[in-house]
Design a protein around this nucleic acid. Structure first.
Lengths: 135, 135
DNA sequence: TATCATATTAGAATAATTCTTGTCAAGTCT
DNA sequence: AGACTTGACAAGAATTATTCTAATATGATA
């Protein structure tokens, strides 16, 4: 709660509920996931509020927008540099906290100044493995 | 042209035009880019045809769908394993043909069976660098 | 070349996201 | 306290990318 004050954005019950939901959340929720969860407590909550709040939090560096799932954006409250494994079946995403020191030979950068990187690993999650065995 | 026959899909002028446009194309075009380019030659071309053809080509392993640009899907006719640098300003994408042998310690895979990976490097492209200097 | 499965087209439908507008609440200044 | 300003909220319209539908046309093959 104290942490939230440092955000420099106005704190409202809706925003606190969104922050609560995101805090420590490792499920990489979509805007809709957040909306569904938070509107249990705030039935009048609108999507605009979810998107606005995510925008502010992103601007403040408190969440990352993930462009991994082709259907929709997903959000990650863990802003330490890390990578992801995504299940090609169910789109479940898990974190990989490991530093892979990647560097590209200058000859291959096409003149870009490099700023960061993100690795997506593809795989099959344990649940989907089990489910497929069952067939 | 001979190569195309091996695809095992019906060849139509529209599809040939799409294949022509994609062949050797390193711009990572979106469906709309393809539509715009091809409909110059085939003014009655519809988006459905672009999407259908991309679907078939993807199924046949002839193009990859890239989920890098948050606004829209982009397509890559280069199906050899490679990575990308994306300009955070203009979303321009370039290829990085380098093999980074990445491996994750078992303790971090959360039980996933790993199949592949893809690295997104973020940076500023030469054009945007120059443009920003100009300010 | 006649057949038939498949492609094409136009446009409707869907889904995620963004935008607009009117309202309201909190804080500020006098 | 009263009037003002600012920013947030909610509802729904608007936008954009993509998928679906249904009617028609066409390429591949026998």
């Amino acid at each position: 709660m104290e942490r939230y004050k440092q955000l420099g954005i106005k704190l409202t019950p809706q925003r606190l509920a969104i922050l609560d939901y995101l805090d420590g959340n490792k499920s990489h929720p979509s805007a809709e996931d957040i909306y569904r969860a938070v509107s249990k407590r705030f039935p009048t909550m609108s999507f605009a509020t979810v998107y606005n709040t995510l925008g502010s939090l992103r601007y403040k560096g408190r969440v990352l927008e993930l462009t991994i799932d082709p259907k929709k954006k997903r959000y990650d409250p863990d802003t330490k540099h890390h990578h992801h494994i995504i299940c090609i079946e169910c789109k479940n995403i898990v974190d990989v906290h490991k530093d892979f020191k990647l560097s590209i030979p200058d000859a291959l950068t096409e003149g870009f100044d490099l700023i960061g990187n993100h690795i997506e690993f593809y795989g099959i999650c344990p649940k989907c493995k089990k489910r497929k065995k069952g067939l």
